[in-house]
Amino acid sequence: MLYDCPECGLPATVTPRGTFSSTSGPVEHVAVHCAADHRFLGPADTLRVLVPRP
């Protein structure tokens, strides 16, 4: 599955990284790597899924 890069919007792949503690409970974090070589580590629920165009 491809996602939008948080910085440039290009297609990005996501690698699950694990769950981190927070004051409101555990939060799943993932690593994002896009076609422009941007890399991020952040909460999984903040990513947008790219929808394939017909």
Rank of each mutant, 00 (worst) to 15 (best):
M1T: 10
M1V: 11
M1E: 14
M1P: 07
L2G: 00
L2R: 13
L2H: 05
L2V: 04
D4R: 12
D4Y: 11
D4I: 00
D4P: 00
C5M: 00
C5N: 04
C5H: 04
P6E: 08
E7T: 05
E7S: 09
C8H: 02
C8F: 00
G9M: 02
G9N: 04
G9H: 01
L10N: 08
L10A: 10
L10E: 03
L10F: 02
P11G: 05
P11E: 10
P11Y: 03
P11D: 03
P11S: 07
P11N: 07
P11Q: 06
A12H: 01
A12Q: 01
T13L: 10
V14A: 15
V14T: 13
T15Y: 08
P16E: 13
P16H: 13
P16R: 14
R17C: 06
R17Q: 13
G18Y: 07
G18K: 07
G18W: 08
G18F: 07
T19D: 12
T19K: 14
F20W: 13
S21H: 02
S21M: 08
S21I: 07
S22H: 06
S22M: 04
T23N: 14
T23G: 07
T23C: 09
T23D: 14
T23L: 14
S24T: 14
P26K: 06
P26L: 12
V27I: 15
V27Q: 12
V27N: 04
E28P: 09
E28D: 15
H29I: 15
H29Q: 15
V30P: 10
V30K: 13
V30M: 11
V30E: 13
A31S: 15
A31L: 14
A31Q: 13
A31Y: 06
A31D: 11
V32D: 01
V32S: 02
V32C: 04
H33I: 10
H33R: 15
H33G: 01
C34N: 04
C34E: 02
C34M: 02
A35M: 11
A35C: 06
A36D: 03
A36H: 02
D37S: 09
D37M: 09
D37C: 04
H38A: 01
H38K: 02
H38Y: 01
R39P: 01
R39N: 05
R39K: 10
R39D: 05
F40I: 02
F40R: 02
F40E: 03
L41M: 06
L41Y: 10
G42I: 05
G42T: 11
G42S: 08
G42H: 11
G42P: 01
G42E: 06
P43I: 05
P43C: 05
P43D: 12
P43W: 09
A44T: 12
A44C: 11
A44V: 11
D45R: 10
D45L: 06
T46C: 07
L47E: 07
L47I: 09
L47Y: 03
V49M: 04
V49D: 02
L50W: 00
L50Y: 01
V51A: 03
P52H: 00
P54T: 06
P54I: 01
P54C: 05
P54K: 09
